[in-house]
Design a protein around this nucleic acid. Structure first.
Lengths: 137, 137
DNA sequence: CTTCTTGCAAATCATTTGCAGGGCG
DNA sequence: CGCCCTGCAAATGATTTGCAAGAAG
């Protein structure tokens, strides 16, 4: 599906800011971007896109289910919602983000919730520490 | 250990704001409080304690290891660090917080980190959903 | 054309900091 | 009595919103 079609499906008009942001997520290796990071990247491209617009677009994308918002540090980071559910490990030294999925943990969360008569809508699991390269530092 | 002694041990002078806040945590059934909540409670008591002071005290307490800071919603909530490690379930409807500890999950996190050559310093696991009383709502 | 969008600036929110007066040890 | 603390107001950083001008369908 083209990016333009994705937008249409979400009930959003095809506009430059939206395409640019989608494009960034599609092409970016890191996958995890904050509004500020997106803003700076687009500034370098002289796209003339304001920070407020980026926040608006990201919120719309989140509502439409196109991206997920995470609250690792103090500001939000977003990632494309194009893969299966996974959790994260964040390197407190270099900021690297490693994704992982573990069936035992997922299952155990469900068991625990059940034991407390709690219905899970969502969950967030984040491990903070040092990645391979930063352990010596 | 008295609250005054706890403060001394942390290298902090015994002052009214600090005692009041410690007292609140000790007496409060909910255990989890935000700076704003503490501020409002103390306002009602006419303690004349400013919000900035509450933030300062909470930060000092966190540094001293007396309290833990969590980032469930958009603002931080604090809890006394007087119990063993545990994770949380937060009811998105009524805000109720349920604490839990699961050995399998803890162990599995360690395994996963190891598999990725990652050294865990800390982790946060939070289940969002509806508690028993809010399921029908 | 009509409605959805955007850029910019001003407004919010949560939290932090500067400063001058006070209080603990 | 010196240094740590506090209240208040102003400063911050992240994110949101008001508004009038511009595009998309």
């Amino acid at each position: 599906m083209s990016q333009s079609e994705e937008l249409k499906l979400a009930g959003l008009k095809t506009t430059l800011p939206r395409l640019k942001i989608l494009e960034l997520f599609d092409s970016n290796k890191s996958r995890h971007l904050s509004a500020e990071e997106i803003y700076k990247i687009l500034l370098d491209e002289d796209a003339g896109i304001g920070l407020a617009t980026i926040y608006r677009v990201l919120t719309q994308f989140e509502t439409a289910g196109l991206v997920l918002r995470h609250n690792f540090g103090e500001s939000s980071v977003f990632e494309l919602a194009d893969t299966d559910h996974h959790d994260h490990m964040v390197c407190v030294n270099c900021g690297k983000i490693i994704e992982f999925y573990d069936d035992k943990i997922e299952q155990q969360q469900i068991n625990i919730a059940k034991a407390h008569d709690f219905t899970i809508h969502d969950h967030s699991l984040c491990l903070y520490g040092k990645c391979k390269n930063c352990q010596t530092a």
